[in-house]
Simulated scan of single mutants.
Amino acid sequence: MSRDLARAPLHRRLENWGNASRGAYDPVDAARITNAWQTLQPRHREILRMVYVWHAAHEVICRRLHIPRRPAQRFELALAAARAALARALKTEDQDRGGWHPSDGNA
């Protein structure tokens, strides 16, 4: 795995994952994201797929996932919850493999 991308913020790693079908991307990190993504609850999987792979508008995502459109923070909270769940899944995956983790601080 590219350690540079593994140290990147989760948002950047998710953008890399979403670009897997579009062009230049880090396939190793995208595979790690996919493996962790597959362990998430369906609602978290769907919002991440719609935001990062489909690049769907917030209105479309809210309609499909039955997220109230007002206040706008409802969408942001749902997305933050999905990102947090993915971050936990990635951390668990790293611990299970006994491998390097970005928070280790070792380069």
Rank of each mutant, 00 (worst) to 15 (best):
D29K: 03
D29N: 13
D29G: 03
A31M: 12
R32V: 06
I33F: 06
T34P: 02
T34V: 00
N35V: 01
N35M: 08
W37G: 00
W37E: 07
Q38P: 06
T39W: 03
Q41K: 10
Q41L: 05
P42L: 09
P42Y: 12
P42D: 13
H44K: 01
H44Q: 11
H44V: 05
R45P: 05
R45L: 04
I47S: 02
L48S: 07
R49H: 13
M50C: 05
V51A: 07
Y52K: 03
W54S: 08
H55A: 12
H55K: 12
H55Y: 10
H55N: 13
H55P: 04
A56S: 14
A56I: 01
H58C: 02
H58T: 09
V60W: 07
I61M: 13
I61W: 05
R63V: 00
L65F: 08
L65H: 09
L65G: 05
H66R: 15
H66A: 12
H66E: 15
I67C: 08
I67L: 02
P68W: 09
R69H: 07
R70E: 11
P71F: 09
Q73E: 15
R74I: 01
R74Q: 13
E76C: 01
L77F: 04
A78I: 03
L79F: 07
L79Y: 00
A81V: 01
A81K: 08
R83F: 03
A84I: 02
A85T: 00
A85M: 01
A85R: 01
L86K: 00
L86H: 00
A87N: 15
L90W: 04
L90A: 06
K91E: 12
E93F: 00
E93K: 08
E93H: 09
D94K: 06
D96L: 15
D96S: 10
R97E: 13
R97D: 12
G98Y: 07
G98A: 08
G98L: 04
G99D: 11
W100S: 07
W100P: 11
H101W: 07
P102M: 08
S103H: 04
D104N: 11
G105T: 06
G105H: 11
G105P: 12
N106V: 13
N106D: 10
